[in-house]
């Protein structure tokens, strides 16, 4: 008799279970190209940095930013893809220092009081997540 009751209850259990999963509702992973949460990139500072190249010293504008790993749904290793919307140049940045959430990008031809904007996205295995704009202005 217990078996019959169990068989009668099983469909109810199956019916009470969760329904289908709507893919459009899955938007909380920052690595998702359709990510809907706040930007994971936070500009920390921008400054001039002298870089010796051969015998010369070249001055760059450094853009320091970090990634909000607290928004990640699970711990992950990653890179950051940076795209200059003006030139269309794309670069892949690694953490600096390694195994941290901090990044720095050197911008050639520093221009004081001019906002420099880039599209940043998390990057892994040759594919990029949602791009977020990040602007910095070098104060004179």
């Amino acid at each position: 008799m217990k078996g019959w009751k169990l068989l009668a209850i099983l469909p109810l259990l199956a019916a009470c279970g969760k329904g289908e999963l709507d893919g459009t509702e899955l938007t909380d992973n920052p690595f998702d190209p359709d990510y809907q949460g706040p930007s994971v990139f936070v500009a920390d500072s921008t400054y001039l940095q002298a870089v010796p190249i051969g015998a010369d010293i070249v001055i760059y504008q450094a853009m320091a930013f970090h990634v909000r790993e607290d928004l990640f749904t699970s711990p992950a290793a990653y890179s950051v893809q940076l795209r200059d919307p003006v030139t269309g140049q794309v670069s892949v940045l690694e953490p600096n220092p390694p195994n941290s959430s901090r990044f720095a990008y050197l911008i050639g031809a520093p221009q004081p009081n001019v906002a420099r904007c880039f599209d940043l996205s998390l990057y892994n295995n040759l594919s990029a997540a949602r791009a977020d704009g990040l602007c910095v202005t070098l104060q004179q």
Binding site: F31, P33, Y78, L122, N124, S127, A129
Partner: peptide, 11 residues
């Protein structure tokens, strides 16, 4: 989906 850090995989 939650654990993935691979955008193409998520897609």
């Amino acid at each position: 989906y939650t654990d993935s850090s691979y955008p193409a995989g998520i897609r």
